[in-house]
């Protein structure tokens, strides 16, 4: 089992609350979502593993067991083209759960007209393989869900 940790401080709201069907209908995969607190934030790795993909607005960490977790910082935030996001790690790095990856400003994402809600997705996971999804306040690095 893999414990997937919250990448940000905020409130765990569940995937159905993400204002994009590609995530809310679990088309990308099952998982959870966190509505981030609106101060400046440091998004962290949700699991320990290799940072196989690092974009300013999204990153994928793959564990030793081959399981990959996608963290998406806001919805449609690819369109911000990295503005307001600062990379704190390098693609290919080995990271531990809770390690800083991207500094960003959820309130700035709000002001640009995008939702800063962060989907956290178990990639290539069956719909029944995720359990124990937390709801309510979470800190970055707190357990968010279990991947069986």
């Amino acid at each position: 089992m893999t414990t997937v940790h919250s990448p940000v401080n905020g409130r765990a709201v569940g995937l159905p609350a993400v204002p994009d069907p590609v995530f809310s209908q679990a088309m990308v995969g099952p998982g959870a979502a966190v509505d981030p607190a609106r101060g400046p934030q440091v998004a962290v790795a949700p699991i320990t593993g290799r940072l196989v993909k690092l974009h300013p607005h999204a990153y994928i960490v793959v564990g030793d067991d081959g399981r990959g977790v996608l963290t998406h910082l806001g919805v449609d935030t690819v369109k911000l083209r990295g503005a307001g996001f600062e990379l704190l790690a390098v693609e290919g790095d080995l990271v531990t759960a809770g390690q800083p990856v991207v500094a960003w400003h959820p309130h700035a994402v709000d002001e640009e007209g995008y939702s800063p809600v962060c989907p956290v997705i178990a990639l290539d996971a069956g719909p029944e393989s995720v359990s124990g999804v937390v709801s309510g306040p979470v800190e970055a690095g707190d357990p968010l869900f279990d991947w069986h």
């Binding site: 990308v28 995969g29 196989v52 993909k53 994928i60 793959v62 990959g68 996608l70 990639l123 290539d124």
Partner: peptide, 10 residues
């Protein structure tokens, strides 16, 4: 068929 592989292909 792997969303991980396709996303990582970038």
């Amino acid at each position: 068929k792997s969303i991980l592989s396709v996303l990582a292909l970038d």
